[in-house]
Design a protein around this nucleic acid. Structure first.
Ligand SMILES: [Zn+2]
Ligand SMILES: [Zn+2]
Length: 829
DNA sequence: AGCACGCCGACT
DNA sequence: GTCGGCGTGCTC
């Protein structure tokens, strides 16, 4: 038997399967999707088995055997292996990178090189050792095996001697491929199955063995096995007494694999399906029928905030589970709060696994294993949960589908929405894309125009709408405030007079306020007030940001840091201003304007600590503060019944960015934050401060008019050939020398145009923009240039891009040029 | 990506 | 004459 293996060497020439023979004793352990250790040239690397064959095309004597089988059960299903290949072709990444993205971090390869001393005389030579080598050899003999790196470190001055010992065979190398996961084991105490036995033994105990008595009594009360550490703390004992009982053979202590359940300590109130409104019921029935049909269907569910999408999700999942199939729910990381988890655990109990980045390696692995072992049938998680190794998926839900976090910024640069659709095709599953502000890309695919161009790979979407709020409360009125007028009237503060009054009123009535400040345009920086000098990173084309906590200024891209300045390096002035985050400034101003105001500030500075995000929200929910002030992150999350005022302080700060999605982002953010006000009994109000009050994204958001915004924005996009009408591929090149970079960029652009021209008769038509300098033109001393390709979405141009990029292969190899390809980029940086 | 093999400059 | 520089090419 032979296995085709994708090796863990992410490079162009190795981006293909290599054949290995499967030793007889490994037959049972090697399957499609297993990880294996294989010899690759002079070293040993990890690989993924992607195919099994009875024979090989190669000269069998050239084929080496697999060295180690790393899994008892393959961590990837055949479907996921196939999906990895699709991802690598679609997003132009190495296949192994796609495979790696599908397994939990704990299983990522770790390479260790160990050495041991050769058997004496094995080399057949009299040991002709250099001075010092004998010492090294003796050290290794004492340790039996030593990790090569630690040996090199220990004898750092004589690294050459170590190398010599290796070359001459006095030391032999053992290469190991490991993963970071050693299943966590805990000593567990077991009582005999017959509890009456324990009572009998109780009598046999010497009177003074009080502690041992306690242990036996415990197991009479609770015969279930218990972790030793838990037992010791509960009964306040030392291990000796338990050990003594085990020595008598009365109790058994064994190492048992533990599963960490991060939610074990929480109890979830079981909930039952709620009655649906006619609107919800109509939507639910469409989804139910699709799930039951077991065919791929994609729904775009446009539901205003508060329209009760979650209940529709829950009941649709129930349908899917009743059918014996599984469900995946994706939620933006920031919205994956305990409250959100609770809604799913409350309904489906321990059939739910939760995957998110705040779990430790081990916790994540445990949740993942519950999925792999089919102990659960629902997964809720952030982007990468789309790779849950289920085998019978019936439903995939992507909540807040417009969120950019569903696009991975590192390779593989996949979009979870597209991966979901690909998996749904394979499983005959339905996909629900839910949002109050659907992305234009998704909306476009519900149109007749898109339906006409639909392919199995890019199916049309079906639009479902939930335009009314469940509790019937209207969306809050939104007031646009023209900050130019304020300026004219001499108000230079961040608060307009109207917003000021509104805040004052809420404070008086003891109601709560949410204030939003987009981060862009209010970034932190350091400036000399005398000469205007701004501290820039010496390695990147970006200003340094001020970190109040460490009193340092640092670069967000390369980590370069220096102490805060006291003198201007240019003019020597002492008038240096360290601008904190925008929110920090707002906080200061609030304190000045409203003495005694209680403000919770949520931004990158205050939410880095694990769990802090939730802590602040809980505090605010308990009315321990008057104002919740923050960036994007306050736009999401909980319902706060006492919030009656929402203020967007600089609504247009995103609009000024050179990004064709700026209007869409602005609209989404304003709509989302407006949904925070007046969700319960008390009526709410929203104030939007802006310097561009006439902009359609702001006007439409103030009217809660998604369709109006969407039509206008569609027109703009069509006019400029932007997505969703055309698709984009962004190719970014980086190198230390600008000249080489420009030359490479030009070669690439020319090659792209040439290849497109060659295929003109096959309907290929693409526009190549650039090369131009990237918006951030230098990072870590490397300059960056980019080419943008625009093309009609019905073409498959991946192969052309791939081929064109290969002309740079030489420069990549010999000159350290880097090429990064982003298909359907979300950020044009 | 690594790592070995192989062919030219400045050292004992 | 040799040590080591990194260009070139391969890995089942
Ligand atoms: Zn200055
Ligand atoms: Zn930098």
């Amino acid at each position: 038997m032979y296995a085709k293996v994708i090796v863990d060497v992410p490079a162009r020439p190795t981006n293909r399967a290599f054949d290995y023979s499967i030793p007889e004793h490994m037959r049972e352990l090697v399957a499609v999707g297993s990880r294996v250790g294989v010899p690759f040239g002079p070293r040993t690397v990890q690989g993924f088995v992607v195919e099994l064959h009875p024979g090989t095309q190669l000269d069998p004597s050239k084929v080496k055997p697999i060295k180690t089988a790393m899994d008892l059960q393959p961590p990837l299903t055949e479907e996921l292996v196939k999906l990895a290949s699709w991802i690598s072709r679609t997003y132009l990444c190495h296949e192994v990178t796609a495979l790696q993205a599908m397994i939990p971090g704990a299983l990522k390869a770790k390479y260790e090189r160990h050495v041991k001393a050769a058997e004496p005389g094995a080399s057949g030579l009299l040991p002709l050792l250099l001075p010092g080598q004998e010492e090294i050899l003796a050290y290794v003999r004492r340790q039996e095996t030593v990790e090569l790196q630690s040996l090199m470190d220990k004898f750092a001055d004589d690294a050459g001697l170590v190398k010599g010992l290796l070359d001459e065979g006095f030391l032999v190398e053992i290469q190991m491929v490991k993963d970071r996961m050693s299943a966590k084991k805990a000593l567990t105490v077991f009582a005999p199955e017959d509890p009456s036995q324990l009572e009998a033994w109780l009598g046999e105990l010497p009177a003074k063995a009080a502690k041992q008595r306690e242990v036996l009594e415990h197991f009479i009360r609770q015969p279930e096995p218990m972790k030793l550490t838990d037992l010791l703390t509960e009964l306040n004992l030392s291990a000796g007494s338990v050990k003594a009982l085990a020595d008598r053979g009365w109790l058994r202590i064994e190492e048992v694999e533990v599963q960490r359940d991060p939610y074990a300590s929480r109890s979830f109130k079981p909930t039952s399906p709620l009655p649906l409104t006619p609107e919800q019921a109509g939507v639910y029935e469409r989804i139910r029928d699709a799930v039951l049909s077991e065919r791929q269907r994609v729904f775009l569910l446009h539901g205003v905030t508060g329209s009760g999408k979650t209940e529709v999700y829950l009941q649709s999942i129930q349908t899917c589970l009743d059918q014996g199939r599984e469900a995946i729910v994706l939620v933006p990381e920031i919205a994956l709060t305990p409250q959100m988890v609770e809604r799913f655990k409350g309904r489906f109990g321990n059939r739910v696994a939760v995957l998110h980045s705040r779990l430790s390696h081990g916790e994540r692995y445990d949740e993942w294993r519950k999925i792999a072992r089919r102990e659960v049938s629902v997964v809720i998680g952030a982007r990468s949960a789309i790779f849950a190794p289920f085998t019978k998926i019936g439903l995939i839900i992507i909540d807040e589908e417009h969120e950019t976090t569903y696009k991975q910024e590192e390779s593989p640069k996949y979009h979870a929405r597209d991966v979901a659709i690909a998996r749904a095709a394979e499983h005959g599953a339905s996909v629900i894309l839910g949002s109050a502000t659907p992305s234009l890309e998704s909306m476009y695919r519900t149109t007749n125009e898109a339906a006409a161009a639909a392919t199995p790979e890019r199916p049309a979407f079906e639009l479902l709408s939930m335009p009314s709020r469940v509790e019937g409360r209207p969306l809050p009125p939104v007031r646009i405030i023209d900050m130019r007028e304020e300026l004219k009237n001499g108000n230079r503060s961040m608060f307009s007079r109207d917003l000021y009054k509104a805040i004052e009123e809420r404070l008086h009535k003891k109601e709560q306020i949410v204030l939003l400040l987009n981060r862009r345009g209010y970034a932190t920086f350091v400036m000399c007030r005398t000469c205007g000098y701004v501290a820039d990173c010496p390695h990147c084309d970006i200003s340094l940001t001020y970190h109040q906590s460490s009193r340092a200024i640092r670069c967000h891209y390369c980590g370069y840091a220096e102490r805060e300045l006291s003198l201007c390096p240019d003019c020597g002035s002492e008038h240096i201003r360290h601008f904190g985050t925008g929110t920090q400034r707002v906080e200061e101003e609030l304190a000045k304007l409203f003495p005694g105001i209680r403000v919770i500030r949520m931004d990158v500075d205050t939410t880095t600590e694990k769990g802090s995000h939730e802590k602040w929200l809980t505090m605010f929910g308990n009315r321990q503060a008057d104002v919740l002030l923050g960036t994007q992150m306050v736009a999401k999350g909980l319902d706060f019944p006492y919030v009656t005022l929402v203020g967007a302080l600089a609504a247009d700060s995103v609009l000024n960015l050179p990004d064709f999605r700026a209007a869409e982002r602005t609209f989404q953010l304003l709509t989302q934050v407006a949904g925070r006000a007046g969700r319960h009994q008390l009526p709410g109000e929203v104030y939007v401060q802006t310097y561009t009050p006439e902009h359609y994204s702001i006007v439409s958001a103030s009217r809660h008019d998604y369709m109006g915004f969407m039509r206008k924005e569609m027109m703009m996009r069509r006019l400029h050939n932007y997505p969703p009408f055309h698709r984009l591929v962004l190719i970014t090149l980086s190198h230390e020398q600008v000249q080489l970079l420009i030359r490479s960029g030009e070669v690439l652009a020319a090659r792209l145009k040439e290849l497109a021209e060659d295929r003109r008769d096959q309907g290929v038509e693409l526009e190549v923009l650039g090369p131009v300098a990237s918006p951030i033109s230098r990072i870590k001393d490397r300059y960056r240039f980019q080419c943008m390709i625009k093309y009609r979405g019905d073409q498959d141009i991946a192969q052309i891009v791939e081929q064109a990029a290969s002309v740079l292969e030489d420069a990549v190899k010999t000159q350290k040029l880097t090429v990064s390809i982003d298909v359907d980029p979300q950020l044009l940086m």
